[in-house]
Design a protein around this nucleic acid. Sequence first.
DNA 1: CAAGTTATCAAGGGATCTATTGAATAACAA
DNA 2: TTGTTATTCAATAGATCCCTTGATAACTTG
Lengths: 222, 222
Amino acid sequence: MGSRAEKSALFEAIALMGKAFASPVRLELLDLLAQAPRTVDELARSSDQSTANASQHLQALHAAGMVTRAREGTSTRYALAGDEVLSLWLALRHASIARLGDVERAARDYLGDEVDAIGRDELITRLRKGDVVLVDVRPAEEYAAGHIEGARSIPIEELESRLAELPADHEVVAYCRGPFCAYAHDAVRQIQASGRQARRLQDGWPEWQLAEKSTRKRRRAA
Amino acid sequence: MGSRAEKSALFEAIALMGKAFASPVRLELLDLLAQAPRTVDELARSSDQSTANASQHLQALHAAGMVTRAREGTSTRYALAGDEVLSLWLALRHASIARLGDVERAARDYLGDEVDAIGRDELITRLRKGDVVLVDVRPAEEYAAGHIEGARSIPIEELESRLAELPADHEVVAYCRGPFCAYAHDAVRQIQASGRQARRLQDGWPEWQLAEKSTRKRRRAA
DNA sequence: CAAGTTATCAAGGGATCTATTGAATAACAA
DNA sequence: TTGTTATTCAATAGATCCCTTGATAACTTG
């Protein structure tokens, strides 16, 4: 007990999970799974990987305990293994933004010009007052897998043809997968171009969902 | 904007930090730095690595933005780069405990039999009532670098000879580096063997410190 | 049962990572 | 200056990781 060998074994066991974060492909798969469970094929297509490669990386994530796997007839559906994993991924993203300038630079390149954002707290009070319309611009399946209460689904590809559904006299808030997802940025630009007021929610569905759970827990404790 | 190349660049930038978690040696170095800043030589000795190897890993951590480096005369002192990094490390440890059975098994092997633990909330109320004595059993330098308010320092190596300093009529709570540190476990066993009541604090100094900061922030916001 | 999907397996070349060794450098003290 | 200590650099061999390719397995549907 307390020997070097046993201490090393401990850190090696943790590094097994750490290794899972060492590949950009796996990170992208995790990011997709943070929205909704998906099959290998869907994940491979969304991340521009060959099926075999996506499958291999998913197996690595599975071995690291980060995703669960469920057979569904002819296909296999992978999902994040739990909230610990989600918050770990969000913590990595957060820390990398804070510490690596390249991440912010890469994000700017990918997202284009910054658009006005609104924070969680402000959105909650505005929603309570009823003077904003909240729009989920992710694909319909992701909305179906979970969304912010009170949001309506208008996938980004349908937005242009459904602009008329949005009120002209209220501000519109759009949200999507998270701070690195281009959908909400695009949506805000489109909505603003139509003469309406619009902002994007600072975070996306995964962050919102985690925040909900932790405030609920804190309230229960108090 | 929004192209595959730019999206890949984004995930590659994040993976730069993710790669830092892929090696057990680097994790151990991080764990040591979570207690207090240290020089290369100290880190190498504490982690049973050659100086050159420790230096190389520290440089990798530095490139990943996870540690800062400061020259101090003839030596170089490394420190965690910020709270985001600390909470990221704690999140990894937490998720690995939750998801990888091997981690818990390895921890049990390293720590020996479980001893009674006390949580943060209970400790706070007991401290307020003044009916427990809180002991920091880490090395004196780590106590000096930061400790729980109201704790007294009795490094584990000195504990046996200083048992008399502990009151027999109050419960003693010992804490150390964290849930994977053997010091508090050992301390509780020693104190109990001397006929006193003792428990270990569930978490260690790093967790406590982060929790302090986040409750303070929440209170400021409210 | 045959054909078609979907996912995994197996093997290999190329890239990357790791620890070791020994030399080089920087700061300081005598 | 010369020696001492603390750290980094450079080179290297061995291990591991990554993606591709082609075959295989599991299951569904016609």
